[in-house]
Design a protein around this nucleic acid. Structure first.
Lengths: 262, 262
DNA sequence: GTGTTTATTTCGGGG
DNA sequence: CCCCGAAGTAAACAC
């Protein structure tokens, strides 16, 4: 929980402080004028400018420009961050590497305005509600919200082409493949459902030519869908089901249900 | 390009420095003990712990735990970041909001270890090569890499269900829909191609029942693909084409070509 | 503004 | 390890 601050440190200090901090589990932030080079999945170069550099002890490296959410260059956790001093120019150089995929970020520092070592102590974990997983739980507990008489047969059913959110059966016994989305449905989601339904229809056709191979319903469940998606569903014989106002307070419903068992 | 540093500032100082910095276009970083609340697309809560908070003048807010690439909480650019002091506890509170979607991040600061104002001057833009766009250029210039006798008819052809990377014709005059991926092909990519091909086949069927409506080839081009994807392609009558070792050094080729014109 | 697609996506879960 | 799909995806780009 301590912070150590270095103002306009020289190259050797930068290299040593960063090395020691990361080794000892501390986070380092630096305000620098630098240029950046990336080589790996693609390659790229960022000319000189003022940036915020963050290095974490898990190998994460972030280079932030003064705007935007995403770092302009980075390395995800799992790699290693090392610092060195380029002899010729007496400049600190921060290099982050990893293998799989093999990639490398090099930050050549021209000027270090400031450097901070932060021994952060954080045991908390983020808790979230309103996720798709919770939506699944809600549907599993209340299959009638999809359609009266619906019965869930299997959740996350594995097929040779991937996972189906729900495999269900409607009131008349017809199988229903259900794909659930927490956000407005897109063409990609339609694609997913289409893939699963095609599979079931093929399998149905194999089981027997006399049975109606198309006797499988596909259901895309989401709070909304664009016109294009609705049309695609209609054209492909799939159904879009608007699950209205699935609010994050669905947890309240679950809580109430659980309370009923007390 | 200047940095101002505040050690263990009090709540009023934090609020004022953050306000002034963001208003004047500077980036602020703070090492704090805080709790965080998010409400918007989902909702969530993060209990007390030491974190690095970054606020940018474009409305970006980042809350970083000591590990991982992604911030545990954030607000993308475009919103507003305001600071205040909770009277009761004399704590700084940083709130980022935006509409569309309507969401809000609240950082309740229990202790501020350090605060930095960074007047960053950065005009550089990141330049990247080895992207999918370059892969497209390569294919357009060398269609034979897909298959001997292939001719590109159209690049980025628009359809009512989205864009097709290439619309081509093979040596025998059969149309080929081509979907190109820079990374290993996934089922999602297969889905995309499948959607386009279905469309072309439907259109073919509409044009004339006597012509073979299935007379369209679909080609998924990528450096590799999982077994599942290859099987899906085979089953759907689509082709997977491994475009071997398309390296980022394709830029070298370009450079050499450009040099030839000197 | 919506709608769609890409991404050095990152991340987590399961086999 | 790979494979797969979610994400508060963000960001670019077309309409």
């Amino acid at each position: 929980m301590g912070v150590e601050r270095y103002d306009a440190p020289d190259a050797a200090t930068v290299a040593e402080v960063v090395r020691a901090a990361l080794h000892e589990g501390a986070v380092v932030t630096a305000e620098v004028d630098c240029e950046v080079e990336y080589d790996g999945r693609t390659s790229g170069y960022l000319g000189r400018g003022d940036r915020l550099v963050v290095a974490k002890p898990d190998g994460t490296l972030l280079v932030h420009q003064p705007t935007k959410h995403k770092p302009v260059n980075w390395m995800p956790s799992g790699g290693t961050v090392v610092t060195d001093v380029a002899e010729a120019a007496d400049q600190p150089v921060i290099v982050a590497r990893r293998s799989n995929p093999r990639e490398r970020v090099e930050v050549r520092v021209h000027e270090t305005y400031g450097l901070t070592r932060f021994d952060a102590d954080d045991a908390a974990e983020y808790e979230e509600s309103g996720t798709e997983a919770e939506m699944h739980e809600y549907i599993e507990a209340n299959p009638d919200c999809l359609e009266d008489g619906m019965r869930i047969v299997e959740h996350e059913r594995e097929t040779k082409y991937g996972f189906v959110d729900f495999y269900a059966v409607d009131a008349s016994g017809t199988p229903v493949v259900v794909e659930v989305k927490r956000v407005q449905a897109t063409l990609t989601h339609f694609d997913q459902l289409q893939r699963y339904v095609s599979l079931y229809r093929e399998d149905g056709a194999k089981r027997g030519a006399d049975t109606d191979a198309g006797d499988v319903r596909g259901m895309l469940v989401a709070p909304s869908a664009s016109t294009r998606v609705k049309r695609a569903c209609r054209d492909a014989g799939l159904e879009f089901v608007a699950l209205p106002d699935f609010e994050t307070d669905a947890t309240d419903v679950t809580d109430a249900t659980l309370a009923d068992f007390d």
